[in-house]
Nucleic acid binder design. Structure first.
Length: 158
DNA sequence: GCCAACGTTGGC
DNA sequence: GCCAACGTTGGC
């Protein structure tokens, strides 16, 4: 049973829920924000539930479900000068950035759009619907997770 | 330790 | 493509 629940953002042009479905699991490298890093490092545990969110998409929204399958460990892309995610301040002796890994659980038949999240009772407190919220790893409550999962499994009626 | 400048995010 | 909001950097 998942103990905690999260929303994780990915741009589908870079990595989509369909990519995750095909690959089964993926390393979540490239997070370069301290708040997001701290959540991954301190609070994410194997088995936690993940809402896989497509950002910079049409429409933006939750595209499916995933599960944390590996806890935080140093993100090697930070050490790689050729990587887009290279950070010269992160060293192997003192890694600055961590990553987790997630595995595919399900792809929704239809994205639960940001608009839909906004208009769904009970989701008013989700961080993702707040204006200007850029955090790419966000905690969500079990109730929010379950509500979004239910919306995703159901054919949209709008 | 302030804060202006800058770069990034991400919805629209 | 625009731009508001936000986080980081670096001069002082």
């Amino acid at each position: 049973m998942p103990r905690r629940y999260w929303l994780m953002k990915s741009e589908p042009d870079v990595y989509s829920i369909q990519d995750l479905e095909r690959e089964g699991e993926t390393g979540w490298e490239g997070v370069r924000n301290y708040q997001a890093r701290n959540l991954m490092r301190d609070d994410m545990r194997v088995g936690d539930g993940v809402l896989f969110y497509h950002s910079n998409a049409k429409p933006p929204g939750v595209a499916g479900l995933a599960r944390v399958c590996r806890e935080a460990h140093p993100d090697p892309t930070a050490f790689d000068p050729d990587s887009d995610y290279h950070d010269p301040k992160s060293t192997r002796d003192a890694p600055r950035w961590v990553m987790v890994a997630v595995q595919h659980v399900e792809t929704f038949p239809e994205v639960v759009s940001l608009d839909r999240l906004r208009e769904t009772p009970g989701l008013e407190d989700m961080m993702v619907i707040k204006r200007g919220m850029r955090l790419s790893v966000q905690p969500v409550s079990k109730r929010e997770f379950d509500t979004v999962a239910k919306l995703g499994r159901r054919k949209s009626s709008k």
